[in-house]
């Protein structure tokens, strides 16, 4: 499904990703962990096509489609979804209108019919339930006046609606209290399927108690330096990153 090979990227003059390799197969959940400044969020942004990053080398493809050649919307239309660490507020942009435009853009790209208003609303109400969100949210502007937890739940709600092939959750657990974290995790788990993959970008093991990963990677200085099973996350929780980094330096 996702194949990333030797990915290098710069912000300004500073190289952040220094040859990152990653393969994610359908249905898998991968966790990417690492200390601050290791390049986790950069990786998520580069994959989703955000401006301000210069890819200098390497390749990234989703089901064989070269992601790096596509605009952000084309990547989304290909089935890539980024749950933002800091969801942006769009003042005055009505949520329903926004969601409908997004869903229909993606459906159109997939060669599907655009949804009419009635079936759209039915669909949206169904998805709202998964995230325990109130439908008053639909009348509000996108992310405006949402609490931190609501913003994160709204991201996963959008994921539920847009049904991506690959979802990247960028520090979705940050700033969430335990109840909100559980709701978000339940939402993600409900969306797990043999065709859908998930990358969890996170700093802490905590999220992985709720969303069990198949594979755990440690990202450090722009490269993946260790890959293991979910037990690796537990070990990290216990021992921190220092030992892996030390071993990496020793190697």
């Amino acid at each position: 499904m996702l194949s990333v090979k030797g990915l290098r990227a710069k912000v300004g003059d500073e190289e952040i990703l220094k040859g990152l390799d990653l393969t994610v197969r359908p249905g898998e959940v991968h966790a990417i962990m690492g200390p601050n400044g290791s390049g986790k969020s950069t990786f998520a942004h580069v994959l989703s096509g955000r401006d301000g990053y210069e890819v200098t080398d390497g390749a990234a493809s989703l089901d064989g489609v070269d992601l790096l050649a596509l605009s952000p919307e084309e990547r989304a239309q290909q089935g890539l979804f980024l749950a933002f660490q800091y969801p942006v507020e769009l003042p005055g942009v009505n949520n329903t209108y926004f969601l409908k435009a997004a869903l229909n853009s993606i459906r159109k790209a997939r060669g599907e019919e655009e949804l009419d208003a009635v079936s759209f609303l039915r669909l949206i109400r169904e998805k709202l339930k998964i995230l325990h969100l109130d439908d008053s949210l639909l009348k509000r502007a996108v992310n405006v006046g949402f609490s931190g937890g609501e913003k994160k739940r709204n991201e996963i709600f959008q994921m539920a609606l847009l049904e991506p092939k690959l979802a990247i959750l960028d520090e979705t657990d940050s700033g969430l209290d335990i109840d909100a974290l559980r709701i978000v995790a339940e939402g993600v788990n409900a969306l797990r399927s043999p065709e859908r993959s998930v990358i969890l970008v996170t700093h802490y093991q905590r999220l992985l108690d709720y969303i069990e990963p198949d594979v755990v990677h440690v990202l450090y200085k722009g490269r993946i330096i260790r890959t293991g099973g979910k037990e690796l996350a537990l070990e990290l929780e216990e021992r921190g990153y220092g030992w892996i980094i030390d071993e990496e330096h020793a190697a």
């Binding site: 096509g49 919307e73 942006v88 005055g92 942009v93 926004f98």
Partner: peptide, 27 residues
């Protein structure tokens, strides 16, 4: 730019995303 990126990351083409944000501004 970050406001424009968000709808694009949800699959909405740039011209529509732009118009959407302008309408939001006017809204």
């Amino acid at each position: 730019p970050e406001m424009l990126f968000y709808p694009r990351a949800r699959g909405i083409a740039e011209p529509l995303a732009r118009r959407m944000l302008c309408l939001g501004f006017a809204g």
